[in-house]
Design a protein around this nucleic acid. Sequence first.
DNA 1: ACAAAAGTGTTTGGAATACACCCATGC
DNA 2: GCATGGGTGTATTCCAAACACTTTTGT
Lengths: 254, 254
Amino acid sequence: MEETFCYQYPRPAVTTDCVVFGFDGQEINVLLVERGSEPFKGKFALPGGFLEPNETLEECAQRELLEETGIDSINLRQFAVFSDLERDPRTRVISVMFYGLLAPKAMESDSIKSGSDAVSLKWLKLEHAMNNTSLAFDHKEAIVKAKEALALSLNREPVAFELLDQTFTIKQLQIIYETLLNIEFDRANFHKKMVGHPSATLKAKPTGRKKNSGVITDTGTVMKNTKHKPAKFYTFDSEKYSKLMEQKDFYFGF
Amino acid sequence: MEETFCYQYPRPAVTTDCVVFGFDGQEINVLLVERGSEPFKGKFALPGGFLEPNETLEECAQRELLEETGIDSINLRQFAVFSDLERDPRTRVISVMFYGLLAPKAMESDSIKSGSDAVSLKWLKLEHAMNNTSLAFDHKEAIVKAKEALALSLNREPVAFELLDQTFTIKQLQIIYETLLNIEFDRANFHKKMVGHPSATLKAKPTGRKKNSGVITDTGTVMKNTKHKPAKFYTFDSEKYSKLMEQKDFYFGF
DNA sequence: ACAAAAGTGTTTGGAATACACCCATGC
DNA sequence: GCATGGGTGTATTCCAAACACTTTTGT
């Protein structure tokens, strides 16, 4: 069956690709798949594939991700379109790029495995992925851009918590912010920003409106088997976050 | 000549569309072109058109804008891709959206005129464009999204000044910020944020490092024929802005 | 006891807010 | 003179940075 599809004007092929960031508790990683066919056979690339006629770009990205990596129900955000003429040696291809986030448990889940094409999967440290010149296509630049896009939304939305399990330590949260923003934060101040000012500011004066703007709360449980004082586990309080966002002067970011 | 282009797999048609914001000194407008052919013949739409095989998306957007409106050398930023299955009645079309900015002088320039297709041009107030249900395709939503994207970059980059001539009044700058962010600012405080703290804060104490973070400077000229105290003209000091941006704690936004 | 990492407190200057006041123009 | 809108000053409040101190674990 040598079926062909003909049009009055030339059309580019359209693909979607996904940058999946996974946090393992220590650092941020990027999911890559080994290519089983040319071009770039044997090289690692972002999961993705060609748009089908009956699906939107978002649906295409979800479908390709499920087929190639087993990842289901992940929130994908579109962040760029790559359209250089020579970016694919086969034919003219423009690619719409998405990124998604996985928390430690989801990242280490058994359901993430290579798809039917029997290509292999690999998690690469974000830092290394951004400098890896052997990635297929322009996927290295895609990863760099995805990180930038993620860093921007970090200052407008509580996306960091999509990289964390239900409960997490402040240290983990801080690693995410520091990695993405390329900034080092003072531990004490970061704590106050996230949890809220515990006593000092609150007992000051009950005159003006107070903004104890903490968006994470203590769960009561602590980490086990640490070589030092055990870290508390916290959770993201989305209701509190929503309330704070309604205030026009609330800014959640750095 | 009934030339056709055939491929092994189905491909969508790809277009670019541009949301051109123009500031006339009083308010922000959006440039629309009247469609000369079906679908949506006679309706107003964003300037744009089909991607050609030998150009990138950016080049396509620039070319279509020049062809249809005469606008040349404008900085275009990609902000979304629309891919709903039914967004174009003819065939499957996905559209990559860009926005660009024009200052009063450029907006009123004679070189902006309808292109070869003899379709007419129209500037619509941004406020009206965002509520205009008779626009072609999904272009109303595109305008809304473009405004949101522009509002976001307003807090990271000095894009507001691309909507202003070389010299401008603080009032004009404030209108732009207020329109895009849907916030009303205190006149005096807005002034200080942009120009810098003139005396009060500076003469306070010469102990710590001072941050007289003004990014616009007085030009010496003033507005003529006003019914009140004439407003000064200011310019954006890009060098000062760059220096401030190098400081890690500098935030230019609201 | 010590090291290491988590958590808390305190001081301080800068910045945002709210608002009062002064200035320059046309009428 | 007055109205109008531009420009400046200032007190208050609040946040964020810097940094010292305390707590809890393992060795």
